[in-house]
Amino acid sequence: MALLRGMGRTLGRMTGRPVAYLDKDADDPQMPLARAAAAAGDWPALRALLEASSESGNRTALVWAIADTQGVEQWIGRAIEAEPASAMPRLVGGFRQITWGWEARTSLRAQHVSREQFRTFHERLQQGEEWLYEAAELEPRWSAPWYGLLVTGRGLQVGPEIARRRFEATVRRYPQHLGAHDQRLQQVCEKWGGSHEEMHAFAREAVFGAPAGTMLGGLVAEAHIEQWLHLDGGEDDAYMRLPEVRESLHAAAEHSYRHPEFVRGRSWASLLNAFAMAFSLAGDREAARECFELTEGRVTESPWNYLDNDPVAAYRKQRSAAGR
């Protein structure tokens, strides 16, 4: 990654643009360490990494990286049994059940998922809920277990009231929790039983109810992209080019990454990539170009994977179209 960034600086001087690369780990050197230890089943090393991190730092990202590693389900149960008073292995186990559950379900639409796949999916999420609730009881100040329960709840379709309570429990502990807000946005969008109106209202309230310079600004862009995805061909592009859509994107940009109080948090690249795609779809080349410049070539998988299976290729295409 360091070599790639160096190439980006060199080629940037030659071409006026940095090399685009998939920024999977937010340039966090602990992420590959966590994956390697997870693959090796080295729980003591993982515990040390997690205990040295914080919820407002990179702990949740490390937990997701561990949970995405194949084979964790084979040894995490033993770690949980060996530490009956510890929340950390239960947190990891709960998140692994989430990713393992979705591996069984796949990303296909519900009508293409078999009954057996759904049964396995629900069983794994239910086990995840059990461990996450235990973690929440052992560490009542932690937001991460409640964040995980937001994800399991969506898969298990716990209903709007329980989903709302889990979101509120998360943000009471961590008011500007990006992951929790992203999950809540999904929960209230039309494809998960909500509506476009509810989704946009939530995004606006979350963004403009937060202090100026908030990292939550990308919620407005994500909401417009969600509605764009829902619409048929032709209607989708027409929607994104509506004057009110552009106006709302600019308002959110002014309240977030354009504001003097904005400080790049861990997920700054995700925020700017979401705005870059939204402004590109809206036909606002100048605003899109500004976002592409600010990303410094760092590409996040979402939302570009909606345009192409290769997010970097989609990013490059839209960046070129914006004249960057």
Rank of each mutant, 00 (worst) to 15 (best):
residue 311 P to F: 04
residue 154 R to Y: 10
residue 279 F to L: 01
residue 306 Y to G: 13
residue 314 A to E: 08
residue 286 E to P: 08
residue 187 Q to S: 08
residue 243 P to E: 07
residue 118 F to M: 07
residue 25 D to A: 12
residue 295 T to R: 01
residue 316 R to N: 10
residue 128 G to V: 07
residue 251 A to I: 13
residue 160 P to L: 01
residue 41 G to V: 01
residue 264 R to C: 09
residue 233 G to D: 14
residue 202 F to C: 05
residue 126 Q to P: 02
residue 269 A to N: 05
residue 211 P to T: 00
residue 181 H to F: 02
residue 171 V to F: 09
residue 42 D to M: 05
residue 135 A to M: 11
residue 29 P to A: 02
residue 17 R to S: 10
residue 177 H to I: 08
residue 251 A to H: 09
residue 250 H to A: 08
residue 76 I to Q: 12
residue 178 L to D: 00
residue 101 G to A: 05
residue 99 T to Q: 12
residue 194 G to E: 11
residue 284 D to W: 06
residue 304 W to G: 12
residue 318 Q to P: 03
residue 38 A to L: 09
residue 125 L to K: 10
residue 143 S to I: 03
residue 151 V to E: 00
residue 252 A to T: 03
residue 287 A to G: 08
residue 175 P to H: 14
residue 273 N to G: 05
residue 308 D to L: 04
residue 31 M to K: 04
residue 14 M to T: 12
residue 84 P to D: 07
residue 70 Q to K: 15
residue 72 V to Y: 00
residue 161 E to T: 14
residue 241 R to C: 04
residue 305 N to S: 06
residue 299 V to M: 06
residue 118 F to K: 05
residue 53 S to N: 13
residue 196 H to C: 11
residue 119 R to L: 14
residue 76 I to P: 07
residue 36 A to C: 07
residue 46 L to N: 00
residue 28 D to I: 04
residue 224 H to F: 01
